[in-house]
Amino acid sequence: MSNDSDNQRLSPLQREEYVEQHHLFAVLGERMKENMPAQEVLAAVREEVLATTKLPMAIDFLLSELKHTGAFADGMRRLGHYFTPFQCYVMSEAENDKRQFDLRVALEVLAKEAEYRASEATRQGLFIYQLEVLCRNRLGYDQGLDAIAADPSYTSEWAEWIFTVRRQIGLVDLADLLYVRSEFALERNQHLQQSGSPVPILFGIQEGRIAWANRRKDPLLLFAAMHRHLGYPAVPRPANADPEERLLPTLARRVEQMNARIQLLEEEQRGGIDLERFYVKPPAEDAAGDST
């Protein structure tokens, strides 16, 4: 079985980075419920996180992007050495006005993932969590699984299998996709043990048993069984809140975007917009890139 003792480290960053990332996303989510502007929250968290991590430099860059665009996702993508493709995808879906994906739920999702990475995380648990995020929140499987496969936490064997899941999900039962790549399936088929498994084994006996027991069932039951028996992290669920309250984060983002546009109009009236700041790479990004 492919395990986490290989040469590739499970998480691309040090543990303290994920501890501080968890703090960032958790505080953002909590204070947005209080209708605090995201820029003020970021500036406050910038002073709270450890200066020995790379997160303060990342926050400086995100603040700059937020002032210009009023969004997080584009800035996170430009810091691809620090934020994973899955983190960027979750944030971009939350900021997509066509999606019914609450930004506060997205921040809880990212906080929970960072917390799991800071603990004794496994690739099996990380994948199950990320896949459940897509399922529960009805996010796009194509782009979502592409983002998961691009996560540097996964080996090439994992990435290849995730692309297989992307092609077959909806056509093949999810539990079957997990089961056939488990040690439990290998144990049940003795002839595979004698001839050698034709495909890499990615899941253990327990994951295989749970997948076998949940064949032809709702995938959410499979995830729930993984939580109960293996302690894999559960995906945060949206609370039953007032529908009008869900509009507040969207309205706050739009206000910030309008403020950014008004600033550009004011600069144009004063004699023109300084375009150099949009083309010259910000020092914060250079510093973060050199340090990682």
Rank of each mutant, 00 (worst) to 15 (best):
A44K: 14
F61K: 03
D146W: 12
V165M: 11
Q124T: 09
D218F: 02
Y116N: 04
F127L: 15
F223E: 00
G70Q: 06
D173H: 10
G125D: 01
D60T: 05
H191I: 01
Q190Y: 14
G272L: 10
A211V: 02
S92T: 07
E157T: 11
T84F: 04
A287H: 13
D218L: 02
V109P: 03
A252E: 13
P12W: 06
L230Q: 04
F86W: 03
P233R: 05
V45A: 04
E47H: 10
A118C: 07
Q124A: 14
E244F: 13
V133T: 11
Q168L: 15
Q194M: 09
V105Q: 09
H229E: 12
A252G: 10
P249M: 01
E34H: 11
E244L: 14
G29E: 02
H68G: 11
Q14W: 03
K112V: 06
L13I: 03
Q39C: 06
L62C: 08
F61D: 00
Y18H: 04
E132F: 05
A224G: 00
N189G: 04
G29F: 02
L126K: 02
A114K: 02
L63F: 08
N259D: 14
A71P: 01
Q8H: 10
A213D: 10
V90L: 03
P249C: 04
Y89L: 06
G170L: 05
L178F: 15
E93M: 12
V172T: 15
L221Y: 06
D97V: 13
D176N: 14
V45Y: 01
